[in-house]
Design a protein around this nucleic acid. Sequence first.
DNA 1: CGCCAGGTTGACACTTTTCAAGCCGCGTGG
DNA 2: CCACGCGGCTTGAAAAGTGTCAACCTGGCG
Lengths: 251, 251
Amino acid sequence: MAQPELARQQNTQLVLAELKAACATCNLRELCLPAGLSNEELDQIEAMVNICRKIRRGETLYRAGEVFDAVYAVRSGFFKSRVTYEDGRDQVTGFSMAGEILGMDGIGQGSHNCDAVALEDSEVCSIPYTRLEELSREIDGLQRHFHKLMSREIVRESGVMMLLGVMRAEERIAAFLLNLSQRLNARGYSPLEFHLRMTREEIGSYLGLKLETVSRAFSKFHKDGLIEVEQKFVRIRNIEGLKQIYAHHVN
Amino acid sequence: MAQPELARQQNTQLVLAELKAACATCNLRELCLPAGLSNEELDQIEAMVNICRKIRRGETLYRAGEVFDAVYAVRSGFFKSRVTYEDGRDQVTGFSMAGEILGMDGIGQGSHNCDAVALEDSEVCSIPYTRLEELSREIDGLQRHFHKLMSREIVRESGVMMLLGVMRAEERIAAFLLNLSQRLNARGYSPLEFHLRMTREEIGSYLGLKLETVSRAFSKFHKDGLIEVEQKFVRIRNIEGLKQIYAHHVN
DNA sequence: CGCCAGGTTGACACTTTTCAAGCCGCGTGG
DNA sequence: CCACGCGGCTTGAAAAGTGTCAACCTGGCG
């Protein structure tokens, strides 16, 4: 037992060394970090971001109940956040792509509130929370930036409440597709053609719908010439049409 | 004219003086502030919390789109937060009672994301955000406490997503009543008898239901001996029964 | 090659909404 | 002081939307 464990530790250290000093050249920097940092501040931040963990598809970054000690910046890949309910029912509460921050739900109670599951092989930067607190006191742009990220998460969730509370099935799905499209676009990918990383069931869970309803809506949108769908591949053919559905399309 | 005006000013100063230095003796202190502050730190915080605004029933504390410059601690009264959608549909995204913090949605984009409307005559402590940022750097417990409050708001909202996404009407309403009951209890009020500050329509909006559905659920609960309802007055007669409904009561 | 997860589609059931009617309590104005 | 109006609430019946169940298809992988 002792030998492999030692080997694993050494290997971990190696990985650590390789992945230092990434922030300065990271093309997601503008999403994670405030603008206008000095070189010195950037050095401090890079020293804080101390691990780049790889998470395989299907594995969890953290689970509900685990001790919270870090937030994570998604470097590559795709995650879902999932809350499980006492009686076994669960719900997907969000999807996270590169440049987004995961784990802020854990600060309040010191343990995570949800599972973060990789939907494809992914990499994350780990940011120990106590270091983040300290550094926030020294670099004032960092404090404000972190507050903004948390606040945006609050706003994002109230947008989802809107989805779930007032929209009907097709509106929810149009809104979902448009949101994905817009986020991909912001990252330099095509806003009109993309692969869904999640199953129909996961989309449904997120939107408060059953997978059959999701499937039917996709079929309907296809019939109406709004999109093409082939398995997980989606092409948006009429984005204005989608927007009309999203904006309370009354038949 | 001069006389009463002068008197009013003096009176105002008196009120301000009275309302300064309130945190130290505020019985909601443990909700707003971290534990273990020194007297000096408390003085600094009291200097930051600079106004106690009164908001009449029906008036707004802030509106969506207004410039964000402060967060608010509810000192007394009751608020709803409401997001209005482009096409006019709106949704209640939360209810806030004494000791809770409002306005953190505004940090991310520098303007408020929702309206905060008083459901009864209320008082709030106003906490200018830039001062809060500065002080967070000096008093480390304060920074962490503020992060916790924001994080809890994130967790609260994902709880609401659960309500909206996976529960059926009666479960949602049982959960709503139990949540109110628990929060009132934490503030020293009876957990079994209380007045609803909001209408059926507002409850419905919050829970993604129509007011008729809310009304029917109340009637059903009454018929089953779980609660008594008379207009806005609610008495819980069988809290375990409510919890069973909430926890996926199948039939 | 066959299995299996994931997806699609149809028929039917159930929940919730919609529409409508009427009640109650409260504040206002005659 | 009473009549009135009105917002808020309750209840019923019918309609609409979504879920449930079941059959079948497809593509990827062992």
